[in-house]
Design a protein around this nucleic acid. Structure first.
Lengths: 304, 304
DNA sequence: GCATTTTATAAATTTTTCTTATGAGTCTAT
DNA sequence: ATAGACTCATAAGAAAAATTTATAAAATGC
């Protein structure tokens, strides 16, 4: 039994005529006869008594009619629901992010997005870049924001906003406005654990200035940006951190930025998605929203 | 979109694999691919992300799955319901009957039938044979019991129980146990209206004895068996009536049967149905039940 | 009875479905 | 890294079905 059979049956029942039904359905009359016949065969009963010039539905047809209608309606509704679901922006969005974007950047953007689409709710999962990348690879996450490109073959990387790593410390550790990169060797350092995007980026940049991490005077390796900041405030040492992470501390003067002469450590965060996955519409919409914060559009930010 | 598509979709969703689904469905894998593709085209979205070795259902597939299941279940239920409806004996049975069977015979049989199938309810419509026959012809009635064969081309006639028309009167009208048919001319008669089965049958029988109705001494023509009986009891005249109609009066002695020498007016009632109509199951069951009261089975009546 | 209407049947055609064969991409294990 | 196994996609041919045209059969209405 197919929906086609039911559609034809319903029309014949309504018209009380094979030939009139065939016109309505833009089919020939024998086609209608044939389909009713096969329905009757499948159900093991006749559906219409052929009186010659007219037909009368049997008891079974009376039972079938409302049910057939209901099935057909349900299928129509189903199609509609899937179509509209494709345009809706609602439901839970789980975004994975490494520390800096997850702590200092995404919450603000998510709040703006939610103002525009109140039916969404956010979960921002903060893990280091490696973990977030793996989760997107394993489909445990649909979207992530990370600071390092790790799987360009399997994941889409779209540049997100730009970040800059800066040298910060209290006056007690470094009492200068500016210094040459080579002097970094003599300064006590508090740094993040390996695997952290900040640590990776920092290492990469320092290597370009011939400053392998082993040459530094590491006084502590800590597991979070916040703990590093606490250590800095306690004048345990200096560190190289995202400007976003120390925005408040620089404003209040607790920490100071020491400019490194001729040395900018800029990076950008990337939005990552699996190349093979289709984004559910809410994610897709949020994706577009995020891209409007990407480097190019920084100069002409989207108005909302 | 067809049920077939949904069936295939459901299996792919369950197996999370095109090839496993194809095995389950006894189809080749390309067929499954093709059907999913056409579903995706029709819905305007992809349903599975092909990762290479595995697939992941998209958001739309998550929405579609429970709905598709529900549609398929509904169709299965529908088939079952129609199948079981074909075996059920319940609902209202409307039987048309002429006066004698409708008044004196069917109520008893209907009561027995209802004892066996408590879910049925009866409506016995009493009209004269002509009217009942017409109603079956026009499909206003599905089944009738009448005393005259009027449309053997279009209706099925199945012999029902046998009746005998007998001459009855009070002692004051005829004070004999028996008489020759020829003496009927001298007796005052109360008779039924034309169109009545009793009247038709009576006329037909009398004609065989060369006694046209015009030769009788008609003192009254009445519209119902009961009114004729009342007239007889008031000794207005004699009448020829069904033995079933005067059963009680003969027993109590209010009326007496006068045997007509060498003259039996036997007839049988017939169950009529339209040749082109399929009987709904309750009618069909009742039909069989009635036939067990037909002349042949009279000697070996069904036990119940 | 004859013209008209309606469904059934038959044969041919078109469309759809399905299969086999093959290719391309992915994962696993060596 | 690469071979082998696995999975889905594509293409072409075969099979099945749906559909049409033409025609027959049955019934109604005049």
């Amino acid at each position: 039994m197919d929906l086609h059979h039911l559609r034809i049956f319903v029309e014949v029942y309504r018209q009380k005529s094979f030939s009139k039904a065939s016109e309505k359905l833009y089919l020939s009359q024998p086609t209608v006869s044939e389909h009713i016949k096969s329905l009757e065969f499948e159900l093991g009963c006749s559906l219409f008594d052929r009186l010659g010039r007219s037909i009368i539905p049997t008891k079974e047809a009376e039972i079938l009619f409302p049910r057939a209608l209901s099935v057909l309606e349900q299928v129509e509704r189903l199609k509609e629901e899937i179509t509209t679901a494709q345009d809706e922006v609602k439901g839970q969005l789980t975004i994975g992010a490494s520390t800096i974007p997850g702590t200092y950047i995404l919450p603000l953007i998510a709040a703006k997005f939610k103002k525009k689409y109140p039916q969404v709710s956010f979960e921002i999962l903060i893990e280091d870049s490696r973990k977030i990348t793996d989760m997107v690879l394993n489909h445990e996450l649909i979207m992530g924001v990370v600071g390092a490109v790790m799987e360009p073959e399997k994941l889409n990387y779209v540049p997100f906003i730009e970040d800059e790593l800066i040298l910060v410390a209290t006056d007690r550790i470094i009492n200068k406005e500016t210094m040459p990169p080579s002097e970094l060797r003599s300064i006590p350092f508090v740094i993040r654990e390996p695997g952290s995007g900040t640590r990776n980026t920092m290492e990469r940049f320092l290597k370009t200035k011939d400053l392998p991490i082993e040459d530094l005077n590491i006084v502590a390796t800590l597991g979070s940006t916040d703990s590093v900041k606490q250590a800095l405030k306690a004048s345990l040492g200096a560190s190289i951190l995202s400007k976003y992470a120390v925005e408040d501390e620089l404003k209040s003067g607790v920490l100071k930025e020491i400019k490194l002469q001729g040395f900018k450590m800029k990076r950008h965060f990337s939005i990552i998605t699996h190349k093979k996955r289709t984004l559910p519409n809410p994610y897709n919409t949020f994706y577009e929203f995020l891209i409007s914060y990407s480097p190019e559009s920084q100069k002409h930010p989207a108005k909302d």
